[in-house]
Design a protein around this nucleic acid. Sequence first.
DNA 1: ACTAATTTGTAAAGCGCCATGACGAAATAG
DNA 2: CTATTTCGTCATGGCGCTTTACAAATTAGT
Lengths: 412, 412
Amino acid sequence: MTAPLHKARPAGAGRALPDTQQGMRRRNLARVMHTVSAAGTLSRAAVASRIGLTRAAVSTLVEELIRTGLLEELGPERPGRVGRPGSALAVSGRGPAGIGAEVGVDHLAVCAVDLRGEVRSTATRHGTNRGRAVQPVVDELRELVRGVVAEAERAGLWPAGLAVAVPGLVARDARTVVRAPNLDWRDTDLTGLLDVPFPLSVGNEANFGALAELWLGEGTPRDFLHVSAEIGIGAAVVVDGGLLHGTRGFAGELGHVPVRPDGPECPCGSRGCLEQYAGEEAVLRAAGLGPGADRVGLLAERAAAGDADVRRALRDAGTALGVALTGAVNLLDPESVVLGGALAALAPWLLPSLESELDRRTAGPACPVAVSRLGSEGPLLGAAHSVVRAVLDDPGVVAERGEPRMGPGSSL
Amino acid sequence: MTAPLHKARPAGAGRALPDTQQGMRRRNLARVMHTVSAAGTLSRAAVASRIGLTRAAVSTLVEELIRTGLLEELGPERPGRVGRPGSALAVSGRGPAGIGAEVGVDHLAVCAVDLRGEVRSTATRHGTNRGRAVQPVVDELRELVRGVVAEAERAGLWPAGLAVAVPGLVARDARTVVRAPNLDWRDTDLTGLLDVPFPLSVGNEANFGALAELWLGEGTPRDFLHVSAEIGIGAAVVVDGGLLHGTRGFAGELGHVPVRPDGPECPCGSRGCLEQYAGEEAVLRAAGLGPGADRVGLLAERAAAGDADVRRALRDAGTALGVALTGAVNLLDPESVVLGGALAALAPWLLPSLESELDRRTAGPACPVAVSRLGSEGPLLGAAHSVVRAVLDDPGVVAERGEPRMGPGSSL
DNA sequence: ACTAATTTGTAAAGCGCCATGACGAAATAG
DNA sequence: CTATTTCGTCATGGCGCTTTACAAATTAGT
């Protein structure tokens, strides 16, 4: 018989739902939703045996979920086994929808995702947002949201919330963009500017990308490190299926991990930060390329064509990434490292040096490095899905046809 | 209205206690215990208002906790206010006890802590364990435990579990010492060797030290990085009041974070690891001192006496620590960094360079660095308290006079 | 001193939620 | 065509918290 060192959090502290019968009911509603969602289609009896409740209890839970439009009854299952066939249940495709939005440096994008995880409506607008004032960008975004919501509503969905991914630091209240250097945003509270008739949350692009990987990626573990590079280099730390935010919400600043303490100066005030070796600007300079549009695509193209300078630049960037990741892996012992965002597109030329560096420097079995298949879609999908997950995690509130319960910033 | 990016874990997954009425009851028992424990002395009505249950419900919970010996009724409170005075409740000083043990390189120590957190019995044995076979060390430890348990029992306590702190890597099952270089232990399962008639868990010394800091330190936040150095340099990552273990239980290997990628070779296979600059051996060498007994004390003594070589060595070690911590702080955004173990004793000479390095390298407000006041007592106290916390976290099992519920390794 | 007000702890009744056990319904196996 | 198995539901019951009521013990006010 063994004892855990200690459980994550003391019982009774920071609990999402109170320990009352109502709270229990709501948690069980959530368990039913998650179970059906994970299986796609499931009978009441199957749900009951999976979550450990009785068929009778599940029946009443399902009845409530169907009544509130979160589950659908598809009818009798194809019986392959003996006994009365169950009635197939599925997550409803006509209930609440999660609206995701992305404010990129060069585009705006919005999408609606239903509870099943299907993308039901999208809208995109290209054109740089660098150097523009905040208000016009927000106005454009609001128009895109309006259109996507309208289309979703025509499909029988209703918006349960909006999550906005931005390329910058977001405070823990999930409302304020503390700073987004490439948009020139600073201390911008989007709730005031982009007022929508449903709950709004704001999050870092890389974090949403990691969540997308967690929720949508196949075989993605519950503990991993997601690294993505757009302009800066950001990492998201996923621990036990949840994002590690840090005290101020700034966790994951991999770009400013020191790689060589006496290296070149970095605008952040330090020297030899990872960004000085593997940041977009540094790589372009090392590759002998100037700034311009779609530089990542250009890098990939030249590298594929065999350009020696570009390949060397990417190889060196991979080495620097490997050094920084060695530190991160030693500290966090993740199950894997996932390269997302622009790094995914450049992975073929980054990986060899990155992995060899990581292997050389870590004792024992090396931490596997995977490449995201979501690519640039990650942040947008992650944002939309974060709203969907909020509904799945607490269907009770939607049951009252209010909006999903939304407290202040997550505590993990 | 704002939405969290996402809550730590999906509802219904990885829950410690099942979502049944019994589970609810047990969680509420735990909430009562934690509330009384935190306040020291509290009336039923005060508990009720703090945890949000009614007085009637708390009455029945308290009745059960008193009946099982976890709470005591101290009698009427001194009334300072109008109204009938409450009856003071306190955590029992004669119930279950947590037994903590520490296998150090140069000593063995055992102690018993009651639910109130008081140390009720201790035993220590000095003498090196380096190079000895496992069995004789374990036999000695068992004798110490036997003595401490006997004394605790004479005081009306009974052992609820034993937690052993070891200077090495422990697998996530909290049973197996994967390797402890300075003891020459490898894949050692202590449950088999040290068989005791109550639950046993094993943990890393630095981790227990961090937990002690979390539970016993004043003003210690729920998110911090605890750094300690005995032979190697270990860090413990505390997130939201729980330890981050990592996939294999190896999280916190700060000693092998690269400081200078081309630095001196490290036995781990990498180059320029932090240990090559701030490890005990490296510091002694830089200070011009050879190996010997109580080398940390010697360093502190010489540094206090003004020895320039020693001071320089410690200053340089502080700088290297600062570089490694910059990476960790950027990645985790902790509320503070706490120096424990040997680092606490040497803090006066490490801190200046460490803090200046950290300040220089982090943008925005720097992460405060604190020094542990627990010092070398930390790991032992943390181990004993981990058992106590397990009881407080689930008093329901003790109520059945079984041992505290103990699943496999913690999930965070 | 005596009454009014306030607060505490407990007891009885009630309600919500899940478990238990029984039943009809719908399929397969022989 | 019957026996068996499984599914979904209903009635009943247990358990846990809330509500309501009340006695006990204190302070405040006259």
